[in-house]
Amino acid sequence: MKAAVLQFPGSNCDRDMAVALEKSGFDVTVVWHKDASLPKVDLVAVPGGFSFGDYLRCGAIAAQSPVCQGLVDHVHAGGYALGVCNGFQVLTETRLLPGALMRNAGLKFVCRTVGLTVETTDSAFTSGYTKGQIVDIPVAHHDGNYYCDDETFAALRDQDRIAFTYTENVNGARENIAGVLSENRRVLGMMPHPERAIDANHGGTDGQALFRSMLDQLVSA
Protein backbone atom coordinates (compact mmCIF):
# COMPACT_ATOMS: atom_id res chain seq x y z
CA MET A 1 0.00 0.00 0.00
CA LYS A 2 1.34 3.39 -0.97
CA ALA A 3 0.96 6.66 0.90
CA ALA A 4 2.05 10.22 0.14
CA VAL A 5 2.78 12.71 2.92
CA LEU A 6 2.45 16.32 1.78
CA GLN A 7 5.08 18.78 2.92
CA PHE A 8 4.59 22.54 3.07
CA PRO A 9 6.96 25.24 4.33
CA GLY A 10 6.16 25.15 8.05
CA SER A 11 4.98 21.54 8.24
CA ASN A 12 6.55 19.96 11.32
CA CYS A 13 4.78 16.62 11.74
CA ASP A 14 5.54 15.36 8.24
CA ARG A 15 8.33 13.08 9.43
CA ASP A 16 6.30 11.74 12.35
CA MET A 17 3.46 10.99 9.96
CA ALA A 18 5.81 9.24 7.52
CA VAL A 19 7.30 7.15 10.36
CA ALA A 20 3.86 6.16 11.66
CA LEU A 21 2.75 5.11 8.18
CA GLU A 22 5.98 3.23 7.47
CA LYS A 23 5.82 1.38 10.79
CA SER A 24 2.30 0.30 9.92
CA GLY A 25 3.48 -1.10 6.60
CA PHE A 26 2.87 1.71 4.10
CA ASP A 27 5.36 2.55 1.38
CA VAL A 28 5.70 6.32 1.93
CA THR A 29 6.67 9.13 -0.43
CA VAL A 30 7.02 12.69 0.85
CA VAL A 31 5.70 15.20 -1.69
CA TRP A 32 6.74 18.89 -1.77
CA HIS A 33 3.95 21.47 -2.02
CA LYS A 34 5.07 22.78 -5.41
CA ASP A 35 4.64 19.41 -7.10
CA ALA A 36 1.52 19.74 -9.18
CA SER A 37 0.91 16.03 -9.44
CA LEU A 38 0.83 13.34 -6.80
CA PRO A 39 2.36 9.94 -7.35
CA LYS A 40 -0.24 7.20 -7.64
CA VAL A 41 -1.00 6.35 -4.03
CA ASP A 42 -3.78 4.79 -1.97
CA LEU A 43 -3.65 7.37 0.81
CA VAL A 44 -2.65 11.02 1.01
CA ALA A 45 -1.71 12.26 4.47
CA VAL A 46 -1.69 15.99 5.24
CA PRO A 47 0.52 16.46 8.31
CA GLY A 48 0.43 18.89 11.21
CA GLY A 49 2.46 22.02 11.56
CA PHE A 50 2.11 25.67 10.71
CA SER A 51 2.06 25.73 6.92
CA PHE A 52 2.99 29.14 5.56
CA GLY A 53 3.21 30.47 9.12
CA ASP A 54 -0.57 30.22 9.55
CA TYR A 55 -0.75 33.47 7.55
CA LEU A 56 -4.23 34.71 6.61
CA ARG A 57 -5.92 31.64 8.18
CA CYS A 58 -4.48 28.30 9.25
CA GLY A 59 -4.20 26.12 6.16
CA ALA A 60 -5.58 28.77 3.78
CA ILE A 61 -2.42 29.31 1.74
CA ALA A 62 -1.50 25.61 1.73
CA ALA A 63 -4.97 24.82 0.39
CA GLN A 64 -4.14 26.89 -2.71
CA SER A 65 -0.79 25.21 -3.36
CA PRO A 66 -0.26 23.10 -6.51
CA VAL A 67 -0.06 19.82 -4.57
CA CYS A 68 -3.48 20.43 -3.05
CA GLN A 69 -5.04 20.38 -6.52
CA GLY A 70 -3.59 16.89 -6.75
CA LEU A 71 -5.08 16.11 -3.34
CA VAL A 72 -8.53 17.33 -4.42
CA ASP A 73 -8.33 15.24 -7.61
CA HIS A 74 -7.23 12.20 -5.58
CA VAL A 75 -10.20 12.56 -3.21
CA HIS A 76 -12.70 13.24 -6.01
CA ALA A 77 -11.50 10.03 -7.65
CA GLY A 78 -12.43 8.15 -4.47
CA GLY A 79 -8.98 8.12 -2.84
CA TYR A 80 -8.34 8.08 0.89
CA ALA A 81 -6.99 11.09 2.77
CA LEU A 82 -6.03 11.75 6.37
CA GLY A 83 -5.47 15.26 7.70
CA VAL A 84 -4.10 15.79 11.19
CA CYS A 85 -4.07 19.14 12.99
CA ASN A 86 -2.89 21.64 10.35
CA GLY A 87 -3.79 18.92 7.86
CA PHE A 88 -7.39 19.00 9.12
CA GLN A 89 -7.36 22.79 8.67
CA VAL A 90 -6.11 22.32 5.10
CA LEU A 91 -8.88 19.79 4.39
CA THR A 92 -11.56 22.24 5.57
CA GLU A 93 -9.97 25.10 3.61
CA THR A 94 -10.07 22.98 0.43
CA ARG A 95 -13.71 22.20 1.34
CA LEU A 96 -12.98 18.48 1.21
CA LEU A 97 -14.39 18.45 4.74
CA PRO A 98 -17.17 20.68 6.07
CA GLY A 99 -16.83 23.31 8.79
CA ALA A 100 -13.85 25.36 9.91
CA LEU A 101 -11.25 25.37 12.69
CA MET A 102 -11.30 28.58 14.70
CA ARG A 103 -9.08 30.02 17.43
CA ASN A 104 -9.41 27.98 20.66
CA ALA A 105 -12.19 29.41 22.81
CA GLY A 106 -9.74 29.87 25.71
CA LEU A 107 -7.32 31.66 23.34
CA LYS A 108 -4.49 29.46 24.64
CA PHE A 109 -2.34 27.01 22.74
CA VAL A 110 -3.32 23.59 24.11
CA CYS A 111 -0.52 21.00 24.23
CA ARG A 112 -1.25 17.85 26.21
CA THR A 113 -2.65 14.34 25.94
CA VAL A 114 -6.45 14.26 25.95
CA GLY A 115 -9.10 11.57 26.01
CA LEU A 116 -11.03 10.93 22.80
CA THR A 117 -14.22 8.94 22.45
CA VAL A 118 -14.41 6.83 19.30
CA GLU A 119 -17.85 7.81 17.95
CA THR A 120 -17.97 5.55 14.92
CA THR A 121 -16.11 2.45 13.78
CA ASP A 122 -17.62 2.68 10.32
CA SER A 123 -14.56 3.95 8.46
CA ALA A 124 -11.18 2.67 7.34
CA PHE A 125 -9.60 4.90 9.97
CA THR A 126 -11.62 3.83 13.00
CA SER A 127 -12.52 0.19 12.34
CA GLY A 128 -9.66 -0.93 14.60
CA TYR A 129 -11.34 0.60 17.64
CA THR A 130 -14.60 -0.23 19.38
CA LYS A 131 -17.48 2.22 19.44
CA GLY A 132 -17.38 4.28 22.62
CA GLN A 133 -13.78 3.32 23.34
CA ILE A 134 -11.76 6.05 25.03
CA VAL A 135 -8.25 6.55 23.70
CA ASP A 136 -5.45 8.87 24.81
CA ILE A 137 -4.02 10.98 22.00
CA PRO A 138 -1.93 14.18 22.21
CA VAL A 139 -3.22 17.52 20.95
CA ALA A 140 -1.05 20.56 20.17
CA HIS A 141 -2.94 23.43 18.57
CA HIS A 142 -4.05 27.03 18.84
CA ASP A 143 -6.85 26.82 16.30
CA GLY A 144 -8.76 23.61 16.87
CA ASN A 145 -12.15 24.99 17.79
CA TYR A 146 -14.34 23.12 15.30
CA TYR A 147 -17.24 25.17 14.00
CA CYS A 148 -20.03 24.22 11.64
CA ASP A 149 -23.56 25.53 11.16
CA ASP A 150 -26.65 23.71 12.46
CA GLU A 151 -27.46 22.12 9.12
CA THR A 152 -23.93 20.74 8.70
CA PHE A 153 -23.88 19.49 12.27
CA ALA A 154 -27.17 17.65 11.76
CA ALA A 155 -25.79 16.04 8.61
CA LEU A 156 -22.58 14.95 10.38
CA ARG A 157 -24.58 13.47 13.26
CA ASP A 158 -27.25 11.80 11.15
CA GLN A 159 -24.73 10.33 8.73
CA ASP A 160 -22.50 9.05 11.56
CA ARG A 161 -19.61 11.16 10.32
CA ILE A 162 -18.29 12.37 13.69
CA ALA A 163 -15.24 10.13 14.12
CA PHE A 164 -13.91 11.33 17.48
CA THR A 165 -15.04 13.66 20.25
CA TYR A 166 -13.02 14.99 23.17
CA THR A 167 -14.02 13.61 26.57
CA GLU A 168 -13.81 17.18 27.91
CA ASN A 169 -14.03 20.71 26.53
CA VAL A 170 -10.52 21.16 25.11
CA ASN A 171 -10.93 24.11 22.77
CA GLY A 172 -14.59 25.09 22.55
CA ALA A 173 -15.32 22.84 19.55
CA ARG A 174 -18.96 22.30 18.73
CA GLU A 175 -20.18 19.23 20.67
CA ASN A 176 -16.48 18.57 21.48
CA ILE A 177 -15.90 17.37 17.93
CA ALA A 178 -12.27 16.29 17.43
CA GLY A 179 -12.50 14.61 14.02
CA VAL A 180 -14.96 14.30 11.14
CA LEU A 181 -15.37 12.11 8.07
CA SER A 182 -16.31 13.04 4.51
CA GLU A 183 -19.59 11.90 3.03
CA ASN A 184 -17.93 8.88 1.35
CA ARG A 185 -16.10 8.16 4.67
CA ARG A 186 -12.72 8.09 2.91
CA VAL A 187 -11.44 11.41 4.22
CA LEU A 188 -10.76 11.93 7.92
CA GLY A 189 -9.69 15.21 9.47
CA MET A 190 -8.79 15.36 13.16
CA MET A 191 -7.03 17.81 15.45
CA PRO A 192 -5.36 15.25 17.77
CA HIS A 193 -2.14 13.57 16.64
CA PRO A 194 -2.44 9.77 16.31
CA GLU A 195 1.05 9.71 14.75
CA ARG A 196 2.42 10.85 18.10
CA ALA A 197 0.87 7.86 19.86
CA ILE A 198 2.42 4.85 18.13
CA ASP A 199 5.38 4.09 20.38
CA ALA A 200 5.25 3.08 24.05
CA ASN A 201 8.46 5.03 24.64
CA HIS A 202 6.73 8.20 23.48
CA GLY A 203 3.85 8.08 25.89
CA GLY A 204 1.28 5.75 24.41
CA THR A 205 0.21 3.56 21.54
CA ASP A 206 -3.48 4.38 21.18
CA GLY A 207 -2.86 5.84 17.73
CA GLN A 208 -1.55 2.57 16.29
CA ALA A 209 -4.99 1.11 15.62
CA LEU A 210 -5.83 3.99 13.30
CA PHE A 211 -2.88 3.33 11.02
CA ARG A 212 -3.22 -0.44 11.19
CA SER A 213 -6.93 -0.42 10.40
CA MET A 214 -6.31 1.88 7.43
CA LEU A 215 -3.77 -0.57 6.07
CA ASP A 216 -6.05 -3.57 6.66
CA GLN A 217 -9.00 -1.89 4.94
CA LEU A 218 -6.92 -0.72 2.01
CA VAL A 219 -5.40 -4.16 1.52
CA SER A 220 -8.80 -5.84 1.53
CA ALA A 221 -10.40 -3.14 -0.67
Partner: peptide
Protein backbone atom coordinates in the same frame (compact mmCIF):
# COMPACT_ATOMS: atom_id res chain seq x y z
CA UNK B 1 -14.47 33.79 -2.17
CA UNK B 2 -11.38 31.80 -3.18
CA UNK B 3 -8.86 32.95 -0.61
CA UNK B 4 -9.24 36.15 1.40
CA UNK B 5 -12.29 35.01 3.41
CA UNK B 6 -13.44 31.59 4.55
CA UNK B 7 -17.14 31.98 3.88
CA UNK B 8 -17.95 29.10 6.22
CA UNK B 9 -17.23 31.44 9.13
Amino acid sequence: EKLLANTVI
